[in-house]
Amino acid sequence: MSKQATGTAFVALLRRDFLLAYRRRAELLQPLVFLLVVVTLFPLGVGPSPTLLANIAPGVIWIAALLATVLSLDSLFRSDFEDGTLEQMVLSGQSLALIALARTVAHWLVAGLPIVLLSPLLAMWMNLPDEGLLILIESLAIGTPVLSLIGAIGGALTVSLKRGGQLLSLLVFPLYVPLLILATSAVSSAVVDLPYTGQLGLMVSGLIASLTLAPFATAAALKLSLS
């Protein structure tokens, strides 16, 4: 049997995902608008005091990013599962972990990267001091791929369930705790001119660890969901 070269299959899958995302670009905006709305609610809820907002800015932006990511995770594997694409991919002989990784990469590029790009606007709204802005962007750039990678495990576990969305958030939010702690503390430290490289370093190691481990867990979960 002439199995397709892994690289070619990986690229074919990425290209398909971008094409599908492009055809459904209106849907992609939903999590981003959600992100903007959530951040807007905070000044309305706690008052517009600039110092208060600046204090809670890293946490608010990061929690909003968490919520927006989880919102888009439910659909990560759902349509491929429901129309039979996933079972054909499993049977194609290609590594399922690699397929999971390709889907996750595509998910980050269309759902995670826009959050990173929007963060300066959010920082401005939340009155985050300029010293923290660069670190906020860096922390989101390192952290949102981790959100996608870990979230993909939850998405794969709940894909065969009719209403997996709520369960998905219950599964993945506890796993996001360390990331949230590290990222917000890095930004807060940068604002008050304290060292933050340690936190960012730990986040990078978290990214490497989840990059190597999470696709295998996702693959196992996908196989299980198909059984």
């Binding site: 002439s2 199995k3 397709q4 070269a5 070619t8 299959a9 074919a12 899958l13 290209r15 398909r16 094409l19 599908l20 055809r23 459904r24 349509s79 429901e82 129309d83 039979g84 694409t85 079972e87 054909q88 991919m89 194609s92 290609q94």
Partner: peptide
Amino acid sequence: GHFPAIKDDLSVEENIRFWMKFMG
């Protein structure tokens, strides 16, 4: 199987071409 593995948002040709590239 029962599920056709066809994407609603892709044309017939794009669907077939994707599977050709993916499966060889």
